[in-house]
């Protein structure tokens, strides 16, 4: 069994960065890390394949950055396909999906795993776009994933509970955060990652024209960036054992209690 996991390398969300006012997109010239959302897909893939399978990472960047990819390889993924091309800068979700779908096609996996959305762009449409481009069935927002007899069965998050959904492989599944505990790379894993194969491709290797990706390929433009109306801070007090009384009186003023 071969599982492809889409992983994104993003600026550290703890340091939210800023917008490049010229290009109107997030500045990504900082050190990139593995999107934490993707670590759940990597962990789930490793658990699903066990000892007799293969986990291949698929990722794209404009500048051959590998830091986040190395982290996922150190967790235990076997290899990676990295599409690295200057023309990818500024790609929207659909352009991103086209590139990832083309790369996944070369890997020919039984299962494709993704996060539900990235922690920087948050569009949340890429998984379904990839599935449609590859003409695959898909189950999004998985809380639990099991494989047996060429089928994947999934507990899919719904507004008020979950659905049990199954479909034959090959298929794409997007995984919600927190459903497995991503392992920390061991020292051995970190050392081993250095010699794992990373196939680096350009978009022309994938037969994609530069007019379909990047700034030019995105069918949308940012017309303005402006500060949002601010919310003012109110009263702040130190708890000296009686703060709960202030909360109570505040709730009473609001007629909540």
């Amino acid at each position: 069994m071969k599982v492809a996991v889409c992983v994104k390398q993003i600026p550290d969300p703890a340091d939210p960065g800023e917008l490049n006012l010229e290009t109107k997109t997030l500045k990504r010239d900082v050190k990139l890390i593995l999107d934490e959302s993707d670590s759940y897909g990597v962990e789930m893939a490793l658990q699903l394949v066990g000892d007799e399978g293969e986990v291949v990472l698929v990722s794209m960047v404009p500048n051959n950055e590998r830091n986040g990819l190395n982290n996922a390889l150190a967790m235990g993924a076997d290899s990676a396909v990295l599409v690295s091309d200057e023309a990818l800068a500024g790609s929207d979700a659909l352009g991103t999906a086209k590139v990832l779908a083309a790369a996944i096609k070369r890997v020919a996996p039984d299962l494709v795993l993704t996060a539900t959305e990235s922690s920087d762009g948050y569009t949340g449409t890429v998984p379904e776009q990839i599935a449609e481009l590859l003409e695959l069935p898909s189950v999004t927002f998985a809380k639990e994933v099991n494989i047996s007899d060429g089928n994947v069965s999934v507990r899919r998050q719904t507004e008020d509970g979950y659905d049990e959904v199954s479909c034959p492989l090959p298929a794409l599944v997007s995984v919600t955060a927190g459903v497995v505990e991503p392992r920390y790379p061991s020292f051995k894993g970190i050392m081993a990652a250095k010699s794992k194969p990373v196939e680096e491709l350009t978009i022309s290797d994938l037969g994609i024209e530069s007019s379909h990706v990047g700034w030019v390929g995105s069918g949308q433009e940012i017309v303005s960036i402006e500060p949002a109306p601010k919310r003012e801070a109110g009263e702040v007090i130190e708890d000296e054992g009686d703060a709960h009384e202030r909360i109570l009186s505040f709730l009473e003023e609001l007629k909540v209690i």
Binding site: E132, E135, T158, D160, G161, D163, E164, V165, S166, C167
Partner: peptide, 12 residues
């Protein structure tokens, strides 16, 4: 192929 996923049970 894209329609192959089926819901078997729903839990609230």
């Amino acid at each position: 192929n894209t329609g192959a996923a089926k819901v078997h049970n729903q839990f609230v």
